[in-house]
Amino acid sequence: MARAIPTRQKIVMSVIAWAIAFLIFFPILWTILTSFKTEAEAVATPPSFLFFDWTLENYVTVQERSNYFRHFMNSVIISLGSTVAGLVIAIPAAWSMAFVPAKRTKDILMWMLSTKMLPAVGVLIPIYLIFRDTGLLDTRLGLVIVLTMINLPIIVWMLFTYFREIPGDILEAARMDGATLRSEILYVLVPMAVPGIASTLLLNIILAWNEAFWTLNLTAARSAPLTAFIASYSSPEGLFYAKLSAASTMAIAPILILGWFSQKQLVRGLTFGAVK
């Protein structure tokens, strides 16, 4: 039975919750606001919160001076490429583990997970040297390979937990009704697997977009995605708050929007089924 909640208590709780949520979100809001200011207004004291001359000039400058779009496309290609490659490798594996589990399936899953726990610095030097000698350093292909490998365990795990929820009986029923293997896959399995695959895709694009160890260490001007491009604003002479804010806003906006759609998958994908 639902209890009647006293309205006053609900109002008080709401005010507290909204205040805290606003504080937590404020740095992002502040970045977005600053991106519309002039450089002078961006460092002015007292700072102006809403009443300043809104301008788009920073966005134009960032694009013109540093070819922002190129880095944006690098991010898109690297995160999409590594996620799709990961899915292509992981779907058959997760599929077979979910539907035809063997004695060692659990061991293999746990082992895959253990590779995710390997700290990146443990393999930084060999990867760097191999990439240097094979010409993969500062290429998008190189980063796609690395990000595919580091996210593969998460992809396999997520798909596995989704696939396991597809009841095997339905396949039997379809087969009894005379469905061929092809129509079984096309009309029964695929529709049931699509939501799980889509969630996995979403979470992995986010993880790959924000990955900031390999992208910083393996790229230079040519193939730098946004993580590495933003890092170039750390040099003292490059400190223009309004431009930093404009570049940052463009870098986080797409993923912020995707992220809000993936709240539920986040828990599932990052806890490997340990919290439900």
Partner: peptide, 14 residues
């Protein structure tokens, strides 16, 4: 939840 989706280099510099 929003801060979780901000890339590390952005949040650090901001």
């Amino acid at each position: 939840i929003a801060p979780f989706f901000v890339m590390p280099t952005v949040s650090a510099l901001v």
